[in-house]
Structures are given as C-alpha cells and as structure tokens.
C-alpha cells in the first residue's frame, strides 16, 4: 500500500519540494555563471586554497594526453599513495585509489595490483570525458588520499563516509552523515542506496538514518546503531562549510566534507543542487530554518558568529 501525505501537512512541516528548491532557493541564490566553480573540482580546490580552507592536497593535474607520458610518472613517483579522479566527474565515478606501491606497480584498497599501464589507461579515459557529465572533455586530478577517521568505521561499509552540510546565505542549515552500504557499492550517494543520517547542528551528534526514503537506524551491513554518534571537529566542519558561501558567491550549496585522521576536516566538493533527502534524514523540513535565516540575514556577521547562531537556533 502506497502511503501518501497531504500537501497541506507537508507545508505545515516546512518540507521543501523539488519545484520550490529550484525556483526559490537555487535559481534565486545561485547565479548561472558561478556554476563552473562548483561543477569543476579543480576550480573548487583553487578557490579553497585561496580562502585557506583545507582540502586534500593536489599532487598534480593531467590535462592533455601528451602529459600522460611526460608528467604523470613524475607525479606518481613522488607519492606512496594517492587518488586519481576526474575533475568534472559525477556520482563518484572514475575515482581510482592507490594505497601502496610494489616494485611492479600499485595496490588498490581491495588488494588488487595494477600496473603503470592500467593507470595511464584510466587517466586517458578520464581525459576523454568517460566519467564527466555529458561526456565533455575533462582533466584528471591526482591528490592526497584521505585517511579516514576511525569514528565511523563501525557504521560504514567499506567506502567513504562523508558529511554533507547545507549552507544558506552563509549559515549552516542542516547536516547529514552519509554512510556507504553494500548496496551503494562503497559510495556515499543516497540514490545508490547509501544511508543518510541526520545530524544535530547544535552539537554534531547523529540522529536516526534513512535509506531509500525509509527510516533505518541500524546499518544493514555492520548491524551497528547509527544514531547518537558524535562527529568530531563539528564546529570546524560548520565553519569551513560556512566559509564556502563567501568563497563561491553561491547562496544555496551543499558542502561535502571528509574527516582525515591527521588533518581533520577537508572539503571534498561542493554541490550547487543539493538533494532534498537530507530533510528525511533529519526528519525535519528545511523551510522553517531557511525562513529563520532570511529573517536575520541583513545583519553582517563573521563566519564564527553565523555558525554560533546556527548552533544556537537549530
């Protein structure tokens, strides 16, 4: 039996629908010409560097096929472990992680060994646009491999747990911890079956989780409880997220952050069209929080003040 909820009830709860998100928040606050700043991870990284926001260190960039022969091996030689990703990739596709080197080649996280040739082929695939949206030509980024913090190892299956924070006009609005599952194939993408767990903005403790729009409080693969976990560096996470508004000039963005064991929170990427599933994960609508921010937005505040305001109010 399909369950329905009436539109008036949704409205009362302050849920934001797709149409409202597009017209009221994205179109009004995110000017078109700024999109390349967030759609291209290389651009985002440059901006973040300028704004002194921590990102995984960029080891090198391969822009043309010619550079694969001339430049790539130098970059690879200099580092023991690294990640290669397309700068315009979507949905976590095209990411190659190397965790160690052997005399003959490289080792992937699952223990599989690959050769130089495999890596060259992967990079040339990236350049040809195999993983980018719409197949446009792309560049390959080689960057620092994040060493994931242990906090989430109990509640994430293999892949990358990350924190998504929605920033509206510089204020943190809502947060979510995204946990990979067997179904999502190690990716933290809600569409592919990852779990989204709401996070209390005030203290960074996880609320219950949601998978495929359904409530799920216990991780299906690790069978551990998802709620009640303290996310470390929570205030820092909110602060660097909030900084992204000034950095990009966009009024409504989703900021994806990973936690490194040694370096703390690092910004992975930004999203100009953040999904609405975060409302289900937090069991709360966005509208009331957004309205509250709109009411105070005239007052000029520093990043730390804005974060403090959000932590107090949400």
């Amino acid at each position: 039996m399909i369950k329905f909820i009436s539109p008036t009830e949704l409205h009362k709860l302050g849920i934001v629908g797709m149409n409202a998100r597009n017209r009221r928040f994205i179109m009004k606050n995110n000017p078109r010409h700024l999109y390349p700043l967030v759609d291209d991870k290389l651009e985002t990284k440059k901006l973040a560097k300028k704004a002194e926001i921590a990102v995984p260190e960029l080891y090198g960039v391969i822009e043309t096929v010619g550079q694969i022969k001339k430049k790539l091996h130098k970059i690879l030689d200099a580092h023991e472990e690294f990640v290669i990703k397309p700068s315009k990739g979507s949905g976590g596709n095209g990411i190659l992680v190397v965790v160690a080197k052997t005399p003959n080649g490289f080792v992937k996280p699952n223990g599989e060994e690959i050769t130089h040739k495999d890596i060259f082929l992967h990079v040339s695939n990236i350049l040809s646009g195999l993983y980018s949206l719409g197949g446009q030509l792309d560049t390959a980024m080689i960057e620092y491999r994040v060493k994931f913090s242990d906090v989430f190892s109990d509640i994430s299956y293999q892949g990358v747990p990350d924190v998504r924070v929605i920033i509206y006009k510089g204020y943190p609005v809502m947060g979510m911890l995204r946990l990979a599952t067997k179904e999502s194939d190690g990716k933290a993408n809600l569409h592919q079956g990852a779990i989204g767990a709401g996070v209390n903005i005030a203290d960074g403790v996880t609320l219950g989780g949601v998978c495929h729009n359904k409530v799920m409080n216990i991780h299906p693969d690790t069978e551990k409880t998802i709620s009640g976990i303290q996310i470390p560096y929570w205030k820092t996470i909110l602060e660097i997220s909030a900084k992204c508004q000034e950095m990009t000039g966009m009024g409504y963005i989703g900021v994806d952050i990973v936690l490194d064991k040694e370096l703390g929170p690092l910004i992975l990427e930004l999203n100009a069209r953040p999904g609405l599933g975060i409302q289900i994960a937090n069991n709360e609508g966005l509208r009331k929080r957004l309205d509250k921010i709109d009411a105070v937005v005239g007052e000029e505040r520093e990043v730390s003040e804005r974060v403090a305001w959000s932590m107090q109010n949400f």
Binding site: K3, E9, H11, G17, A20, V215, Q279, N283
Partner: peptide, 17 residues
C-alpha cells in the same frame, strides 16, 4: 513551487513519525 504528486509519497515517512 508547490509539491509534486510523487513527493507526497517520497516524504510520507514524516506522517508515520
């Protein structure tokens, strides 16, 4: 800017709660 019909299903978990 109102809700889409399918969103009434998508967000139905709010009702359960």
């Amino acid at each position: 800017t109102g809700f889409r019909l399918l969103e009434l299903v998508r967000f139905s978990s709010f009702k359960e709660e």
